[in-house]
Design a binder for these strands. Structure first.
Lengths: 207, 207
DNA sequence: CGATAAAGTGAGTCAAAGCTCGGCTTCTAC
DNA sequence: GTAGAAGCCGAGCTTTGACTCACTTTATCG
């Protein structure tokens, strides 16, 4: 049976509402008091709900946080997927740039949660906040390489993909969450796009 | 007047020893039980010392952690500085590669602490784990750009430096802490070096 | 030695936070 | 209405962990 993994099994309308209210409250608390201040009591209070109710729908504090993370991740992933399908019709560099721009915008929309999670939450086990996003991005990058640099050996291609992924995610997070002063976001995205293309497709003049 | 910031003012030999023992113990506990398991009681016990003694030399749990971080950072910084002075005598790409290689090796030496800190510690409390390293690296990169691409506008140069720094640190951390399977570390460092040079010096054929 | 200060001890205090549980309220169905 | 279930409440149990303090042990020095 491996019974109820998750305690929530809402059957009335107000239950669903409550779950939403709790998650919204959690996001707010995270934004205002940081990850350390994110206690279940506080979240419940903030949601105008009792702790007991919180624990009716979330087995754990962990599950609450995981749900919060999952929702943000899913939302970002949505935008990303859309951008990717649009990008395939563009010339390579423009496509890459478009995807990066959309990713940055999506991350910005979830700025508070993402930021708090990234630099305050114990992510344990190298847990990224957006593993789904990373996976999707890697997937598409693989295809990109297969098309634009079909002669690369598999191992070499993997290495380049790995590197480019790191560059892309890291750059987008930096741009979205801690934009450096004195540089336009546009320019940074341009440079990142250039770098990705350069990094993925072997440069003719050398090596 | 702004009295004891830090409680430690050791005057005998064993005090200094104790501080070291405590820090070693802290690193071990961090490695074995993760950041969440890093309690002052546990650290003291592990060091074969009483909690009270710990608090004689560290005002705070925070100070203990900060000291741990600082020592790792300083050690990495040492290697880095040495590598940088050696690198100036080499051709650009080789120099970059050398610096990256040394950085990776240094990070590997502090693998446990760095890893635990990075993906389990709430960084919000005390910033990055290696701010000194990042600063030093940025400093030198600035000089590198001034030499190899003197015609870049300041803003453009800053943007490229910012990006390249992110690439370098991110790449080195990934290589040192979660090396991807099926790719040699050497190749990854090569690619990263190429990418940095390409990213810092504007590419002639385009833009 | 004997005295004074430095070093070291660890049981215990205190606050915070995760989570439960017995009972109350609101809804649905007859 | 009213019974029974689903939803909800919140005081408080329990654990954990940072930190203290009255005390003992060890070193230094005349």
């Amino acid at each position: 049976m491996t019974a109820q993994k998750s305690r929530k099994t809402p059957q009335q309308r107000r239950s669903r509402d409550m779950i939403d209210r709790l998650l919204v409250a959690a996001a707010q608390v995270l934004e205002e008091r940081g990850y350390a201040g994110l206690s279940t009591n506080r979240v419940a209070e903030r949601a105008g709900v009792s702790v007991g109710s919180l624990y009716r729908y979330f087995v754990d504090k962990n599950e609450l946080i995981e749900e919060l993370r999952a929702r943000s991740s899913a939302d970002v992933l949505g935008d990303l997927t859309q951008a990717l399908t649009a990008a395939v019709a563009m010339p390579a560099r423009d496509g890459v740039r478009h995807v990066l721009a959309v990713l940055v915008r999506a991350l910005k929309r979830h700025r508070a949660v993402t930021a708090a999670m990234i630099d305050e939450a114990p992510l344990g086990a190298h847990g990224n906040i957006l593993p789904e996003v990373e996976r999707q991005l890697a997937q598409v990058t693989r295809i990109f390489v297969a098309v634009h640099a079909p002669d690369l050996e598999p191992a070499e291609a993997e290495a380049r993909i790995h590197l480019a992924m790191g560059v892309a995610l890291n750059a987008c997070l930096r741009i979205a969450l801690q934009p450096p002063p004195g540089v336009t976001e546009e320019r940074l995205i341009d440079l990142t796009a250039d770098l990705m293309v350069l990094g993925l497709v072997p440069h003719p003049s050398r090596n």
